[in-house]
């Protein structure tokens, strides 16, 4: 890395990052915080590019900024929609606040409260400085596992080192991580229901038209991202995120044919990727260890796993965006009334 030539750029990125983070955490306006959060994600993606991590940059742009932002926005929308008083969204803190206010009415209480805050800040600052000095003083940084990855690259069946680590050397981590995504969907479905068949009918025709053009393109991009993961930056997560973004766009635009009712096909799709990954891993037990792809088939198997997982991840993320088990009024109205 030609380290000194771009220092100004780095400084701008860093200062923007810290400033955005400070602003988004400090502002009392939730919507503003939301917008700042999305831009924070985008600047973060810039930092990843600068730090030679294109895979992470893609994932951050697609997942961190592209999907988390809408997640927050729809949550904010739901939070505001439920109650009239936007100001009273402090769920559990009202009581707590009251206590603090009661304490701070007296001068002695105010001083103690201030002292506590100073103590807390001082503690954190000391910790920060301590950790930073460790980072500064210990000059020697281990080269890490890069050497080993480079040595074994040939045997992994893929060209991109990050994909080799993700799906071959440390494929077990990735398997569990996909399970985390799956559990998140199960958890979200167990928590809330969303009425899907309600349509506002107020979507602008221009939006629908644009989405009709963009969605197929995005799906194309997603597939190519998954495919190019074997030799360039990209892979199942990035591709899946783009796929999910296409799904989110279509849902927001209320395209008529799109329904995400948790019937068997949808559940099958959700389970498909994890099950293929797990199944291939187990089938490797036939003549080897768990997840030990036979040499000549490794590349093909990894591509297969990436495709299957990419599809499932896309659907999973879209389901997370929906934010609950979609319920069709016509199909299980009875269940909804009985449930919460």
């Amino acid at each position: 890395m030609n380290s000194l030539s771009l220092t100004l750029f780095d400084c701008v990125v860093l200062v923007t990052l810290l400033g955005l983070a400070w602003q988004l955490l400090a502002t009392p306006d939730l919507f503003k915080a939301m917008v700042l959060f999305m831009s924070f994600g985008l600047v973060m993606a810039l930092a990843w590019v600068r730090l030679a991590a294109p895979d992470v940059a893609l994932a951050e742009a697609a997942l961190g900024a592209g999907l988390t932002g809408p997640l927050f926005l729809s949550a904010l929308h739901r939070l505001r929609g439920t109650r009239k008083g936007e100001r009273r969204q402090q769920l559990d803190s009202i009581e707590h606040r009251g206590k603090i206010e009661k304490v701070t009415q007296r001068t002695s209480g105010r001083i103690i409260y201030l002292l506590l805050r100073i103590l807390f800040a001082g503690l954190l600052l000391t910790l920060l400085v301590h950790l930073a000095t460790i980072l500064l003083h210990v000059e020697y940084e281990n080269p890490g596992l890069g050497v080993f990855v480079a040595e074994q690259q040939e045997e992994s069946g893929v060209i991109s080192p990050v994909t080799a680590v993700l799906l071959n050397f440390r494929g077990y981590d990735t398997l569990l991580e996909i399970m985390v995504l799956f559990v998140a969907v199960v958890a979200v479905w167990s928590l809330a229901t969303v009425r899907f068949s309600e349509k506002s009918g107020q979507v602008s025709p221009i939006q629908q038209g644009v989405v009709r053009i963009l969605a197929p393109l995005m799906i194309l991009v997603a597939v190519s991202l998954i495919w190019q993961g074997t030799h360039l930056a990209g892979g199942a997560f990035q591709g899946g995120a783009v796929l999910a973004a296409a799904g989110v766009l279509m849902m927001v635009s209320e395209l008529p044919w799109l329904r995400l009712i948790p019937s068997l096909p949808v559940r099958l799709m959700l389970v498909f990727g994890p099950l293929v990954f797990l199944g291939l891993g187990v089938s490797c037990l036939a003549d080897g260890r768990f997840l030990e792809y036979p040499g000549e088939l490794a590349g093909f198997l990894i591509l297969l796993i990436e495709l299957a997982c990419g599809l499932s991840i896309g659907l999973t993320l879209a389901c997370l965006f929906v934010g609950g088990r979609p319920v069709d009024d016509l199909v299980d109205r009875g269940q909804l009334e009985e449930g919460s």
Partner: peptide, 22 residues
């Protein structure tokens, strides 16, 4: 060479944090 292992770990972390956030 750039060490791909932390990059893979961060990818894992990003996905985990998105699902937990949701």
């Amino acid at each position: 060479a750039i060490d791909p292992v932390p990059q893979a770990m961060v990818l894992t972390g990003i996905v985990v944090s998105v699902s937990v956030t949701a």
